[in-house]
Simulated assay, not measured.
Amino acid sequence: MTETPAPITQNRPLEGVLWMLAAGLTFVAVNGTVRWLGTDLPAAQSAFLRFAFGVVILLPTLAGVLRAGVPRGAWPLVAGRGAIHTVAVICWFYAMARLPVAEVTAIGFLNPVCVTLGAVVFFGEKLAFRRIVAVLVALLGALIVLRPGLREIEPGHLAQLLAAICFGGSYLFAKRLSQMVGAATVVALMSLSVTLGLLPFALAAWVPVTPTQLAALAVVAGAATVGHYCMTRAFIAAPMAVTQPVTFLQLIWASLLGVLAFAEPVDLYVLLGGGVMIAAISYITWRETVLRGRAVTPPPDAPRV
């Protein structure tokens, strides 16, 4: 059966938030596994193996997609997303193996900011004053965590900065693709295009891989595939400006992971910044739920589907 795109109603904020929460939890599991792997494998090789496993997982979906065909206008978007996502994952694997989990997560908060602003510029989504203030407050929380100017900036920080920007661009491509094809197709085509993009970089730096490393990267692939699917469903359910701020919650989960799994010290600035972010996200999510609920209430004579 040919997959059809889900309708882009963008009027279900609670559903979008729940999908994004599920995505965030799976991505934190991915973070912890990559952090555990460390620096024994080159970043490009680790990223390639993760995406190669993802392609294997998605082979049934990919076969169906290729048989059914993809709209001609979608292929440039698939290629563009594949290219920018390739850069993003190499930088992310490099940073994740070298920085504390909470730091990588905090720098990644530039991602939803870029996505929210990009959605306004490219998709015409509205950014009301209260939402602007909430995003700025959340960003202030991230700055409290990072404390720029008060410590040395390492290559890992720069790599994660570039990764955050590139991931933001990738998510914008995903948003446009979700209007043309179904969520499973978006994820499958991303896995295939990024695997092909990573292949030459991985071969240039290849080192022997142990069975344990392969197993860990297979886990990463499974969790990340689920996370990307949940994220795509969130994009379909609600505007990005509603769903993206929820990703700030990952800082709290990442901080707990760092303390419990890797004995990373508790940082009071992380707790303070995380509290500021949670407050901003809670307000903006509640406000959007109220406003959207009013907007989508159908008139008495509306047809029932």
Rank of each mutant, 00 (worst) to 15 (best):
E264M: 04
W286S: 12
V270N: 01
A261I: 14
W286Q: 09
P245W: 05
R287S: 11
A263V: 03
L271W: 11
G227R: 14
G258P: 13
T285I: 07
T225S: 13
V290T: 14
L291P: 02
A263Q: 04
G273D: 04
I236F: 04
W253G: 00
C230P: 10
I284D: 10
I284K: 07
L272P: 03
A223N: 07
T289F: 04
G273V: 00
L249F: 14
G274A: 05
D267Q: 05
P239I: 03
H228V: 02
Y269A: 09
A263K: 01
E288M: 05
A241S: 11
V246N: 05
S255Y: 02
I281A: 15
L257W: 04
T232N: 08
Q244W: 07
M231N: 06
R233I: 00
R292M: 14
C230W: 10
Y229N: 04
C230I: 05
T247P: 03
C230N: 05
V290C: 14
M240V: 02
S282C: 11
M231A: 06
G222D: 01
I236A: 14
R292P: 01
T232I: 10
W253K: 01
G275R: 11
H228P: 07
M231C: 06
L291Q: 14
V246R: 08
F248H: 14
S282K: 08
D267Y: 12
